[in-house]
Design a protein around this nucleic acid. Sequence first.
DNA 1: TAGATTGTTAATCGATTAACAATC
DNA 2: TAGATTGTTAATCGATTAACAATC
Lengths: 209, 209
Amino acid sequence: MKYKISANVIRRLPRYLRRMTMLERQEVEKVSSTELGERMGLTASQIRQDFNCFGGFGQQGYGYNVKQLREDIGGILGLDRTLSAIVIGAGNLGRALIANFHFSSYGFCLEAAFDTDPALIGTSVNGTAILNGASLEAYLTENHVDVAVLTMPKGFAAEIARLLVRRGVRGIWNFTGTDIDADLGDTVVEDVHLSDSLLTLGYYLRGVS
Amino acid sequence: MKYKISANVIRRLPRYLRRMTMLERQEVEKVSSTELGERMGLTASQIRQDFNCFGGFGQQGYGYNVKQLREDIGGILGLDRTLSAIVIGAGNLGRALIANFHFSSYGFCLEAAFDTDPALIGTSVNGTAILNGASLEAYLTENHVDVAVLTMPKGFAAEIARLLVRRGVRGIWNFTGTDIDADLGDTVVEDVHLSDSLLTLGYYLRGVS
DNA sequence: TAGATTGTTAATCGATTAACAATC
DNA sequence: TAGATTGTTAATCGATTAACAATC
C-alpha cells in the first residue's frame, strides 16, 4: 500500500468480496477481469487498476484465482483482525441487526447490547445479552470496545457519541439518521442514512414516470 | 434540467435536503454557499455547481433562502408526488422500518406489509396491516404499488423480485444483502448493503490501529 | 452606490478507460 | 511456442475547484 487509496476504491472492495464469495459458492475456480467486469458492470481496466492499488493478485495469461482473491481482499479489509462491537438500542432495528446480521462474517465480534427498557434488560437475543443502558459507561471502562452500533432514537445520538469518544470507542456505525456534530477526535463515523437511499430511489422512479 | 444529472449530484441532494430541514428548524433564514460548504464539508463552488444543474436557486449578493431552497430541493426529489410502497417481510427489520421510518416525510405512502408467519398475519404495526404473504400477487393485481421494500430472508429475493417486476412494481428497496440478478426490465433497484458499510468502517479503523 | 454573493466559464485535478508490453 | 490475460503506462473523460463578471 504505497500511498493513500481513494475512497472510491475502498468502497468497491466489499463488492468484490461479495462477488468472490458468491463465485466460490458456485465452485468457480478462476475469473478474468473481463468476466468479472461483465458480471459487476465495471470495466476490466478498472478492476485491474483497483487490484493493483494493493499490488496485484492475478497471474498473466490465467486471470485471478477466486479463492485466493477472496482471501486477499478479505486481508485488505482486515477480516482476520476481529474488532469488538456493541449495539446501543435494542428496539426493532437493534434486534434485527443482532439476530440477522452476521457480524462475525465481517470481522466483528458482537459483545453486548444496551437498552433502557426494563422489559428488555436482562433478556438476550440470539445469544447477545441486553444490558442496562445506565451501565454503559461502566461497561466501557472495563471492556475494550472498538465499534458502537447506534440504533437508539436519534435524540440521544449526540450525548451517546460524546460518551463513546470519551471512553475510547474508535468507530461508530450510525443508524440514527442524524449527523453527529459532536467533536469526534479521530473516531470514525459511518452513517447509514436510509432516507438518502430511499430518496435517491424515488428520484429515479419519478424521473421515469 | 437540460441534460443528464450525474449520480454524484443526485446522491448529494438528500444531504442538502437534510441540512436545509435542520437549518429551518434552527430558524436560520438564509445561508450562503460558503457557510453551507463549511458545515457540510464541501466547497462553495461545488454547492453552486450542484444547484445550477437545476437552474440556480440563489440570489446574487444575498445567498440562498433556506425555506425556499428546501422546497426547491424537495421538488427536484419529487417529495410532492407520493409513491405507494409495501414492505415484504415483517420480521424485526421490516417492523423497525414500519414503526420508525417516516415514509411520508420522503414522499412515500406505506400501504401494507406482508409476511408468512401466522403469528403476524392479521396484526398491524403502527397502523400498517400485515397481510398474508400468499396473497401478495393478488394484492398487486388489485392495487397499484410503486415500490416494494424487501426485508425478508435473502433466499426469497430472486423469486419475489420476479413476481414484483411481472406485476409492474417499478422500484425495489432491497435490504436482503444479495444482488438481485433477475431480469429487471426497467425496474429500479436501490440496494442497502449494510455489510458494505460496516466493512468500510472496519477498513478505516484497522488502517489506523 | 458599494459590498456581497451568486451563476457560469475556465483551469485543475483525479478517476476511469484504453493500449500494450511483460509474462505466465 | 502461441494464446491469454495481467500489470502498468498513457490518454481520455468527468468532476471538482478556482476565478470572475453579472447582479442583487
